[in-house]
Amino acid sequence: MDNERPSPSTESPRLVRRKTLLRTALAAGAAVPVALIGGPALARTLSSTGAAAPLTPACDDGDDPTPEQMEGPYFKPHSPQRTDLLEPGMPGTRLTVSGYVFGGACLPVSGALLDFWQADDNGDYDNTGFRLRGHQYTDSRGAFTLTTIVPGLYPGRTRHLHVKVQAPGRPVLTTQLYFPNEPRNNTDMLFDARLLMNVRNGNGGREAAFDFVLDVPQDPGPSPTGPPPSGSAWATGTAYRAGDRVTHAGRAYVCLQAHTAQPGWEPPTAPALWRAV
């Protein structure tokens, strides 16, 4: 077993509440835009007690960084660079974890290092090789995706993934990610509900999402411009209100809810925000 022990907002009007957008998209049955999938990671399922689990920290200006947790005895440096930890014949339930890495102003951190390691389906760690170990870097949008299996259980611990996250030239965040509705969440001394992933069944396995917020100073930039003239072209940094009309790629759209436009939230890819007219 790990023999691990526990380590001893005001919302800015410049930033979009991704939580609100995600809930709107889900409630409407619409496809969630790619730019919204990772944030914030919400524990939408109930805990084993039947009460709603606390939400992981939303990425809003001034929000606290993702909580740290201790490394444990099974970390190994020099893991291979890869996003897929699956191997032929590997037992276990397929798991895809995706999300974003943000800084202190809720701006994405590109080139951030994420180093993952975990137990296999039997609850064992590979201490001689690099099975179920690997590192990767966030892309230009601050996004990452990991393909692996659901970790097994072993004495003293609930299901969890280990991860180290580091923005370029900044200190390393070491923490662990957890699964909602696990009975052992109530007895694991390390379990922290703020580190719950949003997990659902899908694509022949399970899909999870989590956003990391690092203690990285960022300049949020200037406030967005005011509402544009009706029918003007969609543009990033613009504050749109419900009912505003824009054009994009030769089509007209109406805004469904107020937000500030960001790259990746173009009308065709954001059905929670825009409807073609």
Score class of each variant (00 low, 15 high):
163 V>T: 06
163 V>D: 03
163 V>F: 07
164 K>T: 08
164 K>V: 07
165 V>G: 00
165 V>S: 00
166 Q>W: 06
166 Q>D: 04
167 A>E: 05
167 A>R: 03
167 A>I: 07
168 P>A: 10
169 G>M: 08
169 G>T: 08
169 G>R: 07
169 G>D: 05
170 R>Y: 13
170 R>T: 14
171 P>Y: 12
172 V>M: 10
172 V>P: 02
173 L>W: 00
174 T>I: 08
174 T>Q: 10
175 T>P: 01
177 L>S: 00
177 L>P: 00
177 L>A: 02
178 Y>R: 01
179 F>K: 00
180 P>C: 04
180 P>W: 00
180 P>H: 02
181 N>G: 03
182 E>H: 08
182 E>R: 06
182 E>F: 04
183 P>Y: 04
183 P>V: 10
183 P>Q: 02
183 P>D: 03
183 P>E: 02
184 R>G: 02
184 R>L: 12
186 N>G: 03
186 N>K: 12
187 T>H: 06
187 T>K: 05
188 D>K: 11
188 D>A: 09
188 D>M: 06
190 L>I: 11
191 F>S: 01
191 F>D: 00
192 D>R: 13
192 D>E: 06
192 D>W: 06
193 A>M: 03
194 R>V: 03
194 R>P: 00
194 R>D: 08
195 L>R: 05
196 L>Q: 02
196 L>S: 03
197 M>K: 01
198 N>Q: 15
198 N>R: 05
199 V>W: 01
199 V>K: 00
200 R>G: 07
200 R>L: 13
202 G>W: 03
202 G>L: 02
204 G>K: 08
204 G>C: 09
204 G>T: 08
204 G>F: 12
205 G>M: 06
205 G>L: 03
206 R>Y: 02
208 A>P: 05
208 A>Q: 05
208 A>C: 14
208 A>M: 09
209 A>T: 06
209 A>C: 11
209 A>L: 10
210 F>C: 02
212 F>K: 01
213 V>R: 12
214 L>W: 00
214 L>R: 00
215 D>N: 15
216 V>T: 04
216 V>D: 00
217 P>D: 04
217 P>F: 07
219 D>H: 12
220 P>F: 08
222 P>I: 07
223 S>W: 14
223 S>K: 10
223 S>A: 15
223 S>C: 09
223 S>E: 14
224 P>L: 13
226 G>P: 08
227 P>A: 15
228 P>C: 05
230 S>G: 12
230 S>P: 12
230 S>V: 11
230 S>L: 15
230 S>F: 09
230 S>I: 09
231 G>M: 09
233 A>M: 14
233 A>D: 14
233 A>Y: 14
233 A>V: 15
233 A>K: 13
234 W>C: 12
235 A>T: 14
235 A>L: 14
235 A>Y: 05
238 T>H: 06
238 T>L: 13
239 A>V: 03
241 R>D: 04
241 R>Y: 12
242 A>K: 15
242 A>Q: 15
243 G>E: 11
244 D>C: 01
244 D>N: 15
245 R>H: 10
246 V>T: 14
248 H>V: 13
248 H>L: 12
248 H>T: 09
248 H>Q: 09
252 A>N: 07
252 A>G: 05
